[in-house]
Amino acid sequence: IDAAQIVDEALEQGITLFVVNNRLQYETSRDSIPTELLNKWKQHKQELIDFLNQLD
């Protein structure tokens, strides 16, 4: 699994991931984030931050 897949998966569930001051953040209108997704974010945090920083 790679960062792009995780970002896409989040988007499919209505969650936008982004980076502020090198910290992973998210925006969503959902009430809660699925635990499975949160765990993936934690496991791949640095990859996600690097990936999202490249997009900007």
Score class of each variant (00 low, 15 high):
Asn39Trp: 11
Arg30Gly: 06
Gln43Pro: 03
Glu9Cys: 05
Ile15Gln: 00
Leu48Tyr: 00
Ile15Met: 03
Ile6Gly: 01
Ile33Thr: 03
Lys45Pro: 03
Trp41Tyr: 04
Trp41Cys: 05
Leu55Arg: 15
Glu36Ala: 11
Asp8Tyr: 15
Phe51Asn: 01
Thr28Leu: 04
Val20Thr: 08
Phe51Met: 03
Ala10Cys: 04
Asp50Ser: 10
Thr35Pro: 12
Asp2Thr: 15
Val20Gly: 05
Leu11Thr: 07
Arg23Lys: 13
Thr28Ser: 09
Gly14His: 05
Ala3Cys: 12
Ile49Glu: 04
Ala10Val: 02
Glu36Phe: 09
Gln25His: 15
Asp2Tyr: 12
Asp31Thr: 10
Thr35Lys: 12
Ala10Tyr: 03
Asp50Trp: 10
Leu55Tyr: 11
Ile49Gln: 03
Val7His: 04
Asp8Asn: 15
Val19Phe: 03
Gln46Gly: 06
His44Ser: 05
Gln43Tyr: 08
Asp56Val: 12
Ala3Thr: 05
Ser32Phe: 13
Leu37Val: 04
Val19Glu: 02
Phe51Ser: 01
Leu24Tyr: 02
Glu47Thr: 08
Lys45Thr: 14
Glu27Ala: 14
Leu11Arg: 14
Gln25Asp: 06
Ile15Thr: 02
Leu55Met: 12
Asp50Cys: 07
Gln46Ser: 08
Ile6Thr: 03
Gln54Ser: 13
Pro34Thr: 05
Trp41Met: 09
Asn22Ile: 06
Ala4Leu: 06
Leu48His: 00
Gln25Tyr: 15
Gln5Glu: 08
Glu12Lys: 14
Pro34Ser: 06
Tyr26Trp: 15
Lys40Trp: 05
Val7Tyr: 14
Thr35Asp: 12
Leu48Val: 06
Val7Asp: 00
Arg30Leu: 11
Ala3Arg: 02
Gln46Phe: 08
Arg30Ile: 06
Leu52Val: 02
Asp50Gln: 10
Asp2Asn: 14
Asn21His: 07
Lys42Ala: 14
Glu27Phe: 15
Glu47Ser: 08
Lys42Arg: 13
Asn53Asp: 05
Phe51Val: 02
Leu17Ile: 07
Tyr26Leu: 04
Trp41Arg: 00
Phe18Val: 10
Asn21Lys: 06
Lys42His: 12
Gln43Glu: 11
Ile1Gly: 08
Gly14Ile: 02
Ile15Phe: 08
Tyr26Pro: 02
Phe51Glu: 01
Leu11Ser: 08
Thr28His: 06
Ile33Asp: 02
Thr28Met: 04
Glu9Arg: 04
Glu47Gly: 06
Gln5His: 09
Ile6Gln: 01
Val20Asp: 07
Asn22Pro: 01
Thr16Met: 11
Ile49Val: 08
Glu47Trp: 05
Asn39Val: 11
Thr28Asp: 02
Asp56Pro: 13
Gln46Val: 07
Leu37Phe: 07
Arg23Gly: 08
Thr35Cys: 11
Asp31Val: 09
Asn39Leu: 14
Glu36His: 11
Arg30Pro: 02
Phe18Glu: 04
Asp31Met: 08
Ser32Ile: 11
Ile33Phe: 04
Leu38Asp: 02
Asp56Ala: 14
Leu11Cys: 14
Leu38Ala: 05
Ser32Pro: 11
Thr35Gly: 10
Phe18Pro: 01
Gln5Arg: 13
Lys42Asp: 11
Glu9Leu: 04
Glu9Gln: 06
His44Glu: 01
Asn39Lys: 12
Glu47Phe: 07
Phe51Lys: 01
Gln46Ala: 09
Gln5Asp: 08
Asn21Gly: 11
Pro34Tyr: 02
